[in-house]
Design a binder for these strands. Structure first.
Lengths: 344, 344
DNA sequence: GACTTGTGTGCAACCGCTTGCATTAATGGC
DNA sequence: GCCATTAATGCAAGCGGTTGCACACAAGTC
């Protein structure tokens, strides 16, 4: 029923190998023949079957993209950028959602391995060891995780967390809470490490609350705990939690930012639209998606790059942070960039 | 390098056809042989190559999912549900983003056709004729579009628009604006048709503004026009536009809902979190994703269903709608369901 | 004991395509 | 005009599986 290379060969009076070459090695076929074949192919609506081709060449022109939660607003811009970049290179992309489950991650990578040229693992929850092993079975690029020898795209959240905490301590906050993210998250560990060091350097107290699910509910449910801890400022693992936390704080009668300042991480679209608008550490999600795809595809040529790309983060100051009880440092850190309104 | 059926055959001392049957027709092979083969397969880490299998069986165990814009918050819950449902049936899913471009839709369907068992076309912008034609080339299920003979999952936005407009006229609004959606959107036409009829029946004036891009900016940029038209209430094609519109109205000095009431459609996650919280018509996005996948897979058995599933919508009244200048109808329509706070 | 009836396995063709090699025709060098 | 190149095409094997058919063997049936 579907039109195959044989139909085209018959129609144009050449051998199937000539048709094949017309598409995959056009310079090997006589221009006249080529145009005749192309005309027939066009007329019959022939399209090479990629799966069949892949069987021989080993190149599928597919990419796997594995994320923890498609519905988490952090991921869609990354997925969109990756898909767009992949299609620019004539690749299609499988998307899988693991529901934050490391076991599902492993299963999906293995299930996809044969039908893709490589897999993008975004914010994986697996162990490093397992990632290393999988990376031997299929080309892998990891986003938001740093493992020696594994190609990666990482956003500099350590710096982001540092600047965020400095912003808070400069505002006079002496007791800061950190809402950590899900267990297994490298990003969460980085944030924690950096925030701890920064708070210590500034002589502020840091209370760590978590791990928490990286969702609105995850933030909402710890509002009481934040208040109980006496924190006047909070850095959340991501914007969704920050927004949930703010909801919880408001519900509990606390004002934001007058009583408690809140900083998120990611700068998802939502964060511009809540009230108060969220101060947050912007991560270059779309750029990460593009870069990861590019690495994966470059990969193919000179097998096994081990390069790691670092992307910068920046603090976006909006309305959810304000003065704390302590002395206020006159100058905010220099790397702060403020902007508001609708994204350009 | 990768382990094939031949490796397993060699290791377990049987012919490859026996290994094949062990996986695809286990009842045909002797239990002893079977367990021996399975043991070898397990030990070697063998996984059948789906692409190779598909070459013969014609079943790929893949599904294509084509959406207009992954970053539009309307789609992620649908994608997530579809992916989850697909994986439940051991299928993987290709996701493609068309950027609202009908030409890209066509191209992607064709490109994907050979590597999938079917395609889910969500909110397509193509012409009916083209969809019908594509549907002859690959099993298709359409979401948010009604075409005779094409299996579909549609949300009852006509009813949603009716109830929304009734809600507004009951509140005393006599001049309502409708922000229509992108050209080519069936949903937008349905909303328009229904809103027009409902406004007419209620003796209210309906000004149609658009078509507009279905984004925040799309709503933001027409705020002036809405005010100029003298409308005291607005129904927007989707929540994103409604939210953008509210931003624009506030920026222009109008109060929401005191001066202008705004209703959205979709009930995306965002809509609970903006200020004012958005009154909107909730569409069952996740259910649509699941249903569409189920239809597509059922499809495979008895070729070519032409069933169409209708999903109900409901009005969620929040804070963006209020009294208009006209007489206020005491009772709100009965099918109104109000809820707020965090989704359960 | 010859005859049917299953059961379990092997054989080989084939799915749609690529590719190394052989073949043929055209080209150029001298 | 002959030989060495080069260009264009055909041939056939094979990618990793599936599947109709043939075959061998064991277990009834009478």
């Amino acid at each position: 029923m579907a039109v195959t290379i044989r139909d085209v060969a018959r129609a144009s009076g050449v051998h199937i190998s000539t048709v094949s070459r017309t598409f995959s090695a056009p310079h090997l076929v006589n221009p006249n023949t080529r145009s005749r074949v192309l005309a027939c192919a066009e007329q019959l609506g022939y399209r090479p079957n990629r799966a069949a081709r892949a069987l021989i060449t080993g190149r599928t022109f597919n990419i796997g993209l594995i994320v923890a939660d498609i519905a988490n607003p952090f991921f869609p811009p990354l997925i969109k950028a990756a898909e767009s970049q992949a299609r620019k290179h004539d690749h299609h992309i499988f998307v899988a959602d693991t529901n934050e489950d490391a076991a599902v991650e492993e299963e999906v990578v293995r299930a996809l391995a044969k039908q893709v040229d490589g897999v993008l693992l975004v914010s994986p929850r697996m162990s490093n060891a397992l990632i290393e092993q999988l990376s031997r079975e299929v080309p892998l690029v990891v986003v938001n995780r740093q493992i020696a020898g594994i190609p990666a795209v990482v956003m500099d959240v350590a710096r982001g967390a540092r600047i965020a905490v400095e912003h808070l301590t400069n505002l006079g906050h002496r007791s800061v809470a950190l809402l950590s993210g899900p267990r297994g998250s490298w990003t969460s560990r980085e944030i924690r490490r950096s925030a701890t060091a920064t708070a210590k350097a500034a002589g502020a107290e840091l209370t760590i609350i978590g791990p928490n699910p990286p969702t609105e509910v995850g933030g909402l449910t710890v509002a009481e705990e934040v208040l109980r801890a006496g924190a006047t400022a909070v850095l959340a693992y991501n914007d969704l939690m920050a927004i949930g936390l703010i909801e919880g704080l408001l519900a509990a009668g606390a004002r934001v930012p007058q009583d408690v300042s809140v900083v998120g991480i990611d700068d998802i679209m939502l964060s511009r639209l809540t009230r108060p608008k969220l101060t947050t550490v912007a991560t270059p999600t779309a750029a990460a998606g593009r870069a990861a795809v590019d690495m994966l595809l470059a990969h193919g040529d000179d097998r096994r790059t081990t390069a790691q790309i670092h992307l910068q983060t920046e603090l976006v100051i909006r309305d959810s942070t304000g003065r704390g009880p302590g002395p206020h440092s006159p100058a905010d850190p220099g790397d702060v960039i403020a902007h508001g309104g609708v994204a350009s």
